[in-house]
Design a protein around this nucleic acid. Sequence first.
DNA 1: CTAAAACCTCACATTGATGTCAGAGGCAAG
DNA 2: CTTGCCTCTGACATCAATGTGAGGTTTTAG
Lengths: 125, 125
Amino acid sequence: MRIGELASRAGVSVRSVRYYEEQGLLTSTRSPSGQRHYTDGEVERVAFIQRLYAAGLSSRTIAELLPCVDAPSEEHSDSALERMAQERDRLSAHIADLVRTRDALDALMVTARAYREQLGTALAG
Amino acid sequence: MRIGELASRAGVSVRSVRYYEEQGLLTSTRSPSGQRHYTDGEVERVAFIQRLYAAGLSSRTIAELLPCVDAPSEEHSDSALERMAQERDRLSAHIADLVRTRDALDALMVTARAYREQLGTALAG
DNA sequence: CTAAAACCTCACATTGATGTCAGAGGCAAG
DNA sequence: CTTGCCTCTGACATCAATGTGAGGTTTTAG
């Protein structure tokens, strides 16, 4: 498929797909005229890249981890495994932080609702 | 306390504290010479602002929610409550997404480790 | 008193992923 | 062949929080 279809299937912009390639996260075969062509598998790859971006990984970091996805080998596994563990921990901490913040929002909402209830009662009484 | 102490206690930069004030998230009393002074309570407030930033809320959104923290009243509670619920849901979805990504990383690590084990066995055998 | 350290305002720089535009070429349908 | 849509490269714009530096005042410590 060409870049437009890949982008829409993966739910990203065409611009982003080109950017991923520029960052070395994605490769494409080129038609004689220079247009990029992709296989079905690339859709999942692009989606995964998006997930990693959403998780706060930088292009540089993603570039270090993706070879590990493609083919596990000694060279990758050694340094990449450490990096992966490190990112996993960072992600875990971030998740815990977000959960705490969500709890804080919940508490805030409870307070606000309680105030509303009380106000309603006061007006009715 | 002055801005430097507030910043270091809350774990943010002085620059950021000034920025928060500029965005209407924080107020300060000024000494005759114009220096900002804060109460102990502001430390927690700044830390909370940071949490909200980390949760992906914009200055604008935070500005809409903070009055609700200061004092629950009808005006705030009505629109702010809705906004809060909305942000809470967005946050929940984001957390779920991150957890999925973490799981994917875990799976990747398992694969890499398994490869290593197998490699070690192969070399030993 | 003096020097260092902290503060002030203003303004410009940075970062990183993405948007957008321009000008040119490719490809399928009528 | 032409019309319309897709793609190409390259460059500049954007956004938002934060960094950074200049030039000047205030506070604090010796």
